[in-house]
Design a protein around this nucleic acid. Structure first.
Length: 487
RNA sequence: GGUCCUGUGGCCGAGUGGCUAGGCUCAGCUCUGCAAAAGCUGCUACAGCGGUUCGAAUCCGCUCGGGACCUCCA
């Protein structure tokens, strides 16, 4: 059995992964707030956890992967002021709030699919779990860790801190946290500076609101994840993930809420993915330095020199470890695009490899290295480095410079299936799968004619065929065993 | 201001004490009618200074640079 090690934010160390109820694994990832288009930073996080989910499944775990859709309760601006983001956007686009939710949820799913992310096992929405959230708030109040003022319920952080380590996830003491917070003004109704809203009273103009024991209102933005993870994964579950930017507030508060409600720390392994930067600056909605996935695919953005296929982008992102910042640049993207193509080209070569009586390479050792890389905190860059070793082996074998036994060729095929497709979640670009059998036969004919021309030293004709095909986007590769082609 | 992370060859990016990933770029070679593809070789890097050690990119200290969080954000 493989020993998998995961960097746990809670302890800031690499720990061996031991699920509570093997082979079952509970995985929760904070999903998007669907009030605008997903941007690439979100995509990176979801892609990282998609890879993590895929690897856990590959290892034989039965994973329940829950990723929520936040479709209510996010406030614009300060914790207890401002408009609901959905209501604000609804006004802007002159739509019902739920039309906003629908529009961007559909868009989100399209992008996830383009990146070949597997759908989660459960994708619960905040609005679908208002009852659960209210129940949780009630329980926190009755346990003495929250209080109601004028229809709004606050979590009492200072009281909680007397019994529990509130700043555990970011390794901070309460005093340090207090220093970083502004003084309460006269307008504040909450008691402590760090207190956050669990339930927020609706204003007369609030569009999305629900009845509760404290009057009409809507849930605070941390309670939904606590309520939904608890409902589907239980009081204590294995892995909770999300972007690093959620660590200090959202996840810290999630732990506090669950602890205050269920008297247990909810999560054994916290995992955080790092940020995406553009020219060294974090890509974010507020900074305005981001581009949307469809702009990236089409290249229709001032920062982009050209469009990049979703799979090339996926490969690019997986070439960096999930816990490192990843800088976006045309140069880096183009480098990855070529690497990705080389990897995919070798797959085609692999299908036609001729076997020998003996092997010059130890493919089992290579396979072992691939597992070692992944078992070391999902080290995809190292995995990819090993896969390029396989590329070299395949191409050398194809050139006749190296011999492989039939069983080793089979092992290489398995290696590609397991790691390139199942774990990394890469796939052939959609264009290449569009080849029809007819085109295949036509190309065979064309290559045949060209081969004859070459035999007769009619290079004018053979070059003309090559150049015309090139113009049409078809590349000819001349090898020892004849020519092949690709789009 | 407080807390924390980080600085690797032309570019991207692994690597936490010795065996110096990988991709891309550039140059050369092999193959080839030529080119492309492929293979091989090279450009032999770890911000600076000092310390610990038989030995450091990797540990410690200082200096300089970059970034994150503390306020909505994956």
């Amino acid at each position: 059995m493989h020993r998998l090690f995961i960097t746990n934010t809670l302890t800031r160390t690499k720990e061996e992964f031991k699920p509570i109820h093997p082979p079952l694994v509970g995985l929760y990832v904070c999903g998007p707030t669907v009030y605008s288009d997903v941007h690439l930073g979100n995509c990176r996080t979801f892609m990282s956890f998609d890879m993590i989910y895929r690897y856990l499944v590959h290892l034989g775990y039965k994973v329940r992967y829950v990723r929520n859709i936040t479709d209510a309760g996010h406030l614009e601006g300060d914790r207890d002021e401002g408009d609901d983001k959905f209501a604000k956007k609804a006004k802007l686009e002159q739509l019902e709030p739920m039309e906003i939710v629908q529009k961007y949820t559909v868009g989100f799913h399209e992008v996830m699919q383009a990146f070949n992310n597997l759908p989660p096992s459960i994708e619960p929405t905040a609005t679908g779990h208002i009852c659960e959230q209210i129940e949780m708030v009630k329980e926190i109040i009755s346990n003495g860790y929250a209080y109601e003022i004028n229809g709004t319920v606050y979590f009492d952080v200072e009281k909680y801190s007397k019994s529990f380590n509130y700043g555990q996830l970011t390794n901070r003491k309460l005093e340090e946290l207090l220093e970083g917070t502004r003084e309460l003004s006269g307008q504040d109704e909450k008691k402590g500076r760090l207190d956050f809203a669990l339930w927020i009273k609706a204003k007369p103009e609030t569009l999305m609101k629900w009845p509760s024991p404290w009057g009409w209102g809507f849930p605070g933005w941390h309670i939904e994840c606590s309520a939904m993870s608890n409902k589907y994964l239980g009081d204590v579950f294995d892995i909770h993930g999300g972007g690093m930017d959620l660590q200090a507030t959202h996840h810290t508060n999630e732990i506090a809420q669950s602890q205050a409600c269920k008297h247990k720390a909810p999560v054994n392994y916290w995992m955080h993915t790092n940020m995406l930067t553009v020219n060294g600056v974090r890509m974010s909605k507020s900074a305005g330095n981001g581009f949307l996935p469809h702009e990236l695919f089409s290249g229709n953005h001032p920062l982009l020199e050209k469009g990049y296929a979703p799979m090339a982008v996926r490969f690019f992102m997986l070439q960096t470890h999930y816990s490192s910042t990843l800088d976006f640049s045309n140069e880096a993207l183009q480098a990855s695009e070529k690497g990705y193509e080389r990897l995919m080209d070798s797959l085609a070569t692999l299908q036609n490899l001729k076997s020998s009586e003996q092997s010059d390479e130890d493919l089992h050792a290579l396979q072992q290295k691939c597992y070692e890389a992944m078992n070391d905190d999902f080290n995809t860059p190292v995995l990819i480095a090993h896969l390029f070793d396989a590329v070299r082996i395949i191409n050398s074998c194809n050139d006749g410079k190296l011999k492989l036994k039939a069983e080793d060729i089979a092992l290489l095929k398995k290696l590609y299936q397991d790691f390139v497709f199942d774990v990394l979640g890469l796939k052939q670009n959609s264009e290449s799968s569009k080849y029809s059998e007819v085109l295949d036969k036509v190309m065979d004919l064309v290559l045949d004619i060209r081969a004859k021309a070459k035999q007769e030293k009619n290079f004018a004709l053979s070059d003309a065929i090559r150049d015309k095909l090139n113009q049409a986007g078809v590349q000819i590769k001349d090898g020892k065993e004849g020519s092949s082609w690709k789009v």
